[in-house]
Design a protein around this nucleic acid. Structure first.
Length: 461
RNA sequence: GGCCCGGUGGCAGAGUGGUUAUGCAGAGGACUGCAAAUCCUUGUACGUCGGUUCGAUUCCGGCCCGGGCCUCCA
């Protein structure tokens, strides 16, 4: 089984060859915890969770190390804490906690390590010191800056040269910069902002250095895959490469760079002013996490995707179809099964999740058409194992169909079961008018009934 | 201005140098007390103009349209 990945370094799909198959190392840029995660933050998490799951399948669960950081030192955090009158620590820990819960609801596995920037300051200071020693950085006016001209190959990932950067610069160049392209490694803090003592005075790290320091600590100087959003290619990832390669004297920081495409919401760029700013936390009030996950997986991770309520409805309908297949189990226990070969092939081909989903549908149809109980159970098991590889079908089918976004406001399970029982009685008496009346009443509350051989099943539609 | 992505049938969304994607929605049928679910059948595609080719939606080039990045936005 070989995995192919689109590598931003070469802009081509390449066969993935780990440095050490017994220790496959993946790093993804995590959130800056100043606000709840929005759907644009969720996409990379789900996409790279799929990659993590695939790597675990191919190389073994014990042989994949996935690091995703939490950025808990940042000027946006400082500003947010100040305006909401809570401490920085309260803000970052509270936000991080919600983040973990939200991502878990999306069925994203927790990363192997989730380092926080504030717990890695020493490593950053050390790295900055190394960069200064090697002539790649300089202190000026309380700041430490990376000297971009000191790196011959700067710009390789984003494919820009320094002249283009300067020509395109839209921000005023700070006076302490020797070169307009230089970027901050360390900056001074005052009494209001968090800071640490350093050889260059009391201050705090720049953004890029944290990923360089943390990836080096947990994954080594050169590792396999570095993942993140498309928008991070420049400057963030470019600068990470500069810092890491110059500090470690390496050719590469990571062998493969994978980037997810952007999300629009309801056809437009997500913005609070447009009213389409969807946070995962809010969405989870109305939709099962798996529905959100499915919607995200239904577009290839590199393509731009439009996230919409309509798309969520479609995702819900599709998952209903699968859970219907999985609910209709006629044997005591499903046999053990491996994921479908074609589905794994699709995923191994640069995470082609839409094709894999199409395969799930084919497997569902096969299960529905199976002529014998045994064959049906086998097909159902295959479907379930395949979906589970993608982080789907983790719910109990009955629980899935009972799920309600407005629990308590609508009919309770007991109410529904009482009505269903009344209708069963009516049908026994051949009082179809009464049976239909009850069914209409339930339908109005969004309950769908199915009269099957084994009795009447219900679900919230 | 520079760099980089996309434009597929009513919708979502894969893929391919010649042959059915898949799902939803639509139409017809089977099943059902009627439904639901399920199964069967079925229609509508590849932005535009050129080029390469026996043949292009698929490769190449121009153009049009949309999106992203160009110093801290996933």
């Amino acid at each position: 089984m070989t995995i192919k990945l689109h590598n931003t370094l070469t802009r081509q799909k390449e066969t993935f060859e780990p440095i050490d198959p017994a220790n496959v190392r993946l790093y993804a840029c995590g959130p800056t915890v100043y606000d709840y995660a929005h759907i644009g933050n969720a996409r990379p998490v789900v996409a790279f969770d799929m990659l993590f799951r695939l790597l675990r399948l191919v190389y073994g669960e014990e042989h994949v190390l996935y690091v995703r950081n939490i950025t808990d030192i940042d000027d946006k955090i400082n500003a947010r804490a100040k305006e909401s009158g809570i401490s920085i620590r309260e803000l970052t820990e509270g936000t991080a906690e919600v983040y973990r819960a939200d991502m878990a609801a999306l069925e994203a596995l927790p990363p192997s390590v989730e380092p926080r920037a504030t717990e890695n300051i020493a490593g950053m200071i050390e790295m900055i010191g190394t960069l200064i020693d090697k002539g790649h950085a300089y202190a000026a006016d309380g700041h430490v800056l990376f000297s971009v001209p000191s790196m011959e190959k700067y710009g390789g990932l984003s494919r820009r040269n320094r002249d283009e950067l300067i020509a395109g610069a839209r921000v005023e160049v700070a006076p302490y910069k020797k070169d307009p392209a230089d970027f901050i490694l360390w900056k001074p803090s005052d009494d209001e902002t968090p800071g640490w003592e350093s050889p260059w005075g009391y201050g705090r790290p720049g953004w890029h250095i944290e990923c360089s320091a943390m990836s080096a600590r947990y994954l080594g100087e050169e590792f396999d895959i570095h993942a993140g959003g498309l928008d991070l290619i420049f400057p963030h990832h470019e600068n990470e490469i500069a810092q890491s390669c110059c500090a470690h004297d390496t050719e590469r920081m990571a062998r493969y760079w994978v980037h997810n495409g952007f999300v629009t919401v309801e056809g437009e760029k997500m913005a609070k002013s447009v009213g389409n700013f969807y946070t995962v936390n809010d969405l989870l009030k109305d939709w099962q996490g798996e529905v959100i996950r499915y919607h995200l997986l239904s577009t290839h991770y590199r393509a731009p995707m439009d996230f919409s309520k309509e798309g969520l409805k479609e995702a819900k309908a599709a998952l209903d179809r699968f859970y219907l297949v999985l609910r209709n189990v006629e044997v005591d226990e499903l046999p053990d099964s491996k994921p479908d070969r074609h589905l794994v092939d699709a995923l191994a081909d640069d995470l082609n999740t839409p094709l894999a989903i199409a395969r799930l549908h084919v497997l569902a149809t096969e299960a529905n058409k199976a002529p014998t109980r045994r064959k049906k159970a086998k097909a159902q098991a295959k479907l379930k194992a395949s979906g589970e590889l993608m982080g789907l079908f983790g719910s109990d089918p009955d629980a899935w169909f009972r799920w309600s976004s407005d629990a308590g406001e609508s009919l309770s399970d007991a109410d529904i079961e009482a009505l269903v029982a009344r209708r069963i009685e009516a049908r026994k008496e051949k009082d179809f008018a009464e049976a239909d009346r009850v069914r209409d009443q339930l339908a109005e509350a969004g309950i769908v009934l199915e009269d099957g051989a084994g009795g009447t099943a219900w679900r919230r539609g």
